[in-house]
Design a protein around this nucleic acid. Structure first.
Length: 563
RNA sequence: GUCUCCGUAGCUCAGCCGGAUAGAGCGUCCGCCUCCUAAGCGGAAGGCCGUGAGUUCGAAUCUCGCCGGGGACGCCA
C-alpha cells in the first residue's frame, strides 16, 4: 500500500543510504505526466562526486522496482517513478471499502485525551459572527482528533464571572421586565446593559451598587444567584440553539465561575515555589528572563485575574482528564497572554506545560471596521445562518423544484456554506465579514463539495450500484487516476491537520477530490456500456462519495444525498 | 519604543521542514446540457512571490536589514 515507503526502501541500496532519510527526499512531481513520485539526486552529487543527471540515470538503472511501481525514469537530476495505475487503484479503493467511515482515520491517539477549549461564549452577550471561527475550528479539531483515535473533550469555557454581572442585576432591577426578557432573550439583556452604561456615566453611584451586587453573587446570596443563573439560562438557551444548528456539542460547560474556588491552590503553590513577587502592590511572576512582561496573578486589591483563572483551569483539566494535549482555540490577540501563563506553568515545574497549545486565529471584522456590541454594528451569528439557509432555499426551489424536504436540505447547505467558509483558509488569516462572499455558492465552496457528493450519490442511485468484484485495470485513464490519487492523499491530510491543528488542510483535501471527481464525471461516462468498466467506475464513484462524506463530516459540514 | 504575526494574479487565498514551467477560486471575456444533478467542465487574459542583501548547485520557501499592514505590551477577559 505504501508505495512511497517501498520506493525509499528500494532506493536505499543503490543510493547507499537509509530508507528513513530517503523517504523525506521523495517528492511529488509538478505534473502527473512526470510521474507519481520523484527523487531529486542533487544532494548525492557531493558525496558521490558525480553530476546529478548521471546519478539519476544510474539509480534508475540499478533500482529493483518494488511491487506496484511500473517504471523508474531519469529526467534531468531526478528519477521519476510511475506507479502501476491498476495497483494503485486497487490499494486505495480496497482500503476505502475495508475501512468505510473510518477511512482516513487511525488509532494513533488511542487511549489519550485531548482537551479542546473552544467557542467559550460570554453570558448575557450576543453570539455574533466573530464567534464563528473559534466555534467551528474547535468543533472540527474535536472530530479530527477523534477520527485519529484520540478522545476529545470539548470544553466551553463560559465567560460567566465578573463585575458585569453585578451591573446586569442593577440594570434589571431598575429597567428590566421579567417577561420581556424571557421572551426577548439576550437582545433584551444587552439593551438594559447598554442602558446601564449610558446611565452610569451620569450616575457613578450605580457602579457601587453593581459592585455590591456582584459581591452578593460571590457570597452566595440567594436572590443574586437566582438572577445570575437566570441570565445564564437565557443565554445558554439561545447559544445552544445555534450549536444545534451547527451540529456541535460540548462535554463540559465549566466556565470562569467554576474555577472560582480553585484559585487559592494556584496562588499557594506559586508562593511555595517562590515564583510570586510583590510589585507595585500586585503579586506577579517575573518573566523578564524570557523577554516577556510579568504575569499578574493577584491584583493590588487581592482579586484574581484572567491568567490566574486559566492556570487554575489548566491544573484542574490535567487532574481531571490527564490530557495529552490541551488546545485553546482563541484569537491571536491573546497570544502574549497564553505565552505568559504557559511559561508560568512550566516554571511551576509541570512538564506538561509543553502540551498546552494556543490554537490562534485571525480576527473577524466588518467592512466598516471592527465589530463592537456597543457600536451596534455587530452581526448576530443566528441571523447569518438564517440568511444563508433562506438563500439556499431559494436556489433549491429554482434548481431542484422536485426535491423533497427542501427546507432540511436548504439548512444543511446554507449552514455548510458558512462553516466551510470559516475552515477554507489557514487560521491565522483575518476575515472581513462580507455578505456577498458568505452567500456566494460558486467555486470552491461548501455547496460545491456537497453538490459533488450529491452528484455521486445520484449516479450510484440511478445505476442501482451493488459492490462487487472490480477490474482495477479499467481505472487507469488520467481522470480516474487523479481521483484515486486524491482519495489516497486524504488520510495524510487528516494527520497533518491534527499535527498543525489546521482543519483547512482537510477542507482543501476535500476540494482536490471534488475537483478531480467532477472532471472525471465530465470526461468519462460512469454508466458505460461495458459492464466491467461500469462496475469499476461505480466503485470509484462510491469510494469518492465515502471520502467526501468523511471529509465533510470532519469539518462539520452535512453531506446531503440530494440537493 | 519592544515583542509578535502577516505581505504571492484586480480581489480572496494555497504553496513556505529549499528543488523541474509559481497554483486555485472569485471577478472579466469566450466556449460546453437530444447522455449519469450546468451549485458543473474547458479555454483566454492576469504575477520581477513587498524590497535589499546573504546562505546554497538551486530561494516564493531559510537568515538578516528595510518598507508597509494587523495585534499585543501590568492590575479587563
Amino acid at each position: 500500500m505504501d508505495f512511497k515507503r517501498a520506493i525509499a526502501e528500494a532506493l536505499a541500496k543503490p543510493a547507499a543510504m537509509h530508507a528513513d532519510e530517503l523517504i523525506n527526499w521523495l517528492e511529488t512531481p509538478p505534473s502527473p505526466e512526470m510521474g507519481d513520485y520523484a527523487f531529486p539526486c542533487f544532494k548525492l552529487a557531493k558525496t558521490l562526486r558525480k553530476a546529478p543527471p548521471a546519478i539519476a540515470a544510474q539509480l534508475a538503472d540499478e533500482i529493483v522496482l518494488p511491487q506496484g511501481v511500473a517504471k523508474a525514469a531519469p529526467a534531468g537530476g531526478y528519477v521519476n517513478f510511475f506507479l502501476d495505475k491498476a495497483a494503485q487503484a486497487k490499494a486505495v479503493l480496497e482500503k476505502v471499502f475495508a475501512e468505510n467511515e473510518r477511512y482516513g482515520g487511525s488509532d494513533i491517539g488511542k487511549g489519550r485525551n485531548v482537551c479542546i477549549d473552544y467557542s467559550s461564549v460570554n453570558i448575557a452577550k450576543p453570539f455574533h459572527i466573530g464567534h464563528l471561527p473559534t466555534t467551528v475550528i474547535g468543533a472540527a479539531l474535536y472530530r479530527i482528533y477523534n477520527h485519529l483515535g484520540y478522545n476529545s473533550v470539548g470544553i466551553n469555557h463560559l465567560g460567566d464571572w465578573g463585575t458585569q454581572f453585578g451591573k446586569m442585576i442593577v440594570a434589571y432591577k431598575r429597567w428590566g421586565d421579567h417577561d420581556t426578557i424571557d421572551k426577548g432573550g439576550v437582545d433584551e439583556l444587552v439593551k438594559i446593559y447598554v442602558r446601564y452604561h449610558q446611565e452610569s456615566e451620569q450616575n457613578p453611584a450605580l457602579d457601587d451598587e453593581a459592585r455590591a451586587w456582584f459581591k452578593r453573587i460571590e457570597d452566595g446570596d440567594a436572590e443574586a444567584l437566582e438572577l445570575f443563573e437566570w441570565f445564564k439560562k437565557i443565554t445558554l438557551k439561545e447559544v445552544e440553539e445555534v450549536y444545534d444548528i451547527l451540529g456541535i456539542r460540548f462535554d463540559s460547560y465549566a466556565g470562569e465561575s467554576f474555577y472560582n474556588d480553585k484559585m487559592g491552590r494556584v496562588v499557594d503553590e506559586l508562593r511555595e515555589k517562590n515564583l510570586l513577587k510583590l510589585d507595585q502592590g500586585a503579586q506577579i511572576v517575573d518573566l523578564s528572563d524570557y523577554k516577556m512582561p510579568p504575569c499578574i496573578i493577584l491584583r493590588s486589591d487581592g482579586a484574581t485575574l484572567y491568567a490566574t483563572r486559566d492556570i487554575a483551569a489548566a491544573l484542574y483539566r490535567k487532574d481531571t482528564y490527564d490530557f495529552a494535549k490541551c488546545l485553546y482555540v482563541v484569537a491571536y490577540q491573546q497570544d502574549l497572554h497564553f505565552r505568559q501563563w504557559f511559561k508560568v506553568v512550566e516554571l511551576m515545574g509541570y512538564d506538561w506545560a509543553k502540551d498546552l497549545v494556543h490554537v490562534s486565529f485571525g480576527m473577524v471584522s466588518g467592512t466598516e471596521g471592527a465589530f463592537s456590541t456597543r457600536k451596534g454594528n455587530m452581526v448576530k451569528l443566528r441571523n447569518v445562518l438564517d440568511a444563508a439557509c433562506e438563500k439556499t432555499y431559494d436556489i433549491i426551489c429554482e434548481k431542484s423544484p422536485d426535491l423533497e424536504d427542501k427546507q432540511t436540505i436548504a439548512n444543511q447547505v446554507g449552514v455548510g456554506a458558512l462553516i466551510w467558509n470559516s475552515l477554507y483558509n489557514g487560521r491565522i488569516k483575518d476575515v472581513v465579514f462580507d455578505w456577498d462572499a458568505v452567500l456566494n455558492f460558486d467555486g470552491e465552496t461548501g455547496p460545491y463539495a456537497q453538490y459533488t457528493h450529491a452528484r455521486a450519490c445520484s449516479v450510484l442511485r440511478k445505476a442501482d450500484y451493488k459492490p462487487g468484484a472490480v477490474d482495477y485495470s479499467k481505472l487507469t485513464d488520467p481522470e480516474s487516476a487523479a481521483v484515486i490519487a486524491a482519495i489516497g492523499a486524504f488520510p495524510d491530510a487528516v494527520v497533518e491537520a491534527m499535527e498543525k491543528n489546521e482543519p483547512y488542510l482537510v477542507t482543501r483535501s476535500v476540494i482536490n477530490l471534488c475537483a478531480a471527481f467532477n472532471k472525471f464525471y465530465y470526461e468519462q461516462r460512469i454508466m458505460a456500456d461495458d459492464a466491467a468498466v461500469r462496475q469499476a467506475r461505480l466503485a470509484l464513484t462510491d469510494a469518492t462519495k465515502k471520502a467526501i462524506a468523511i471529509g465533510l463530516g470532519l469539518i462539520g459540514v452535512f453531506a446531503p444525498e440530494r440537493m
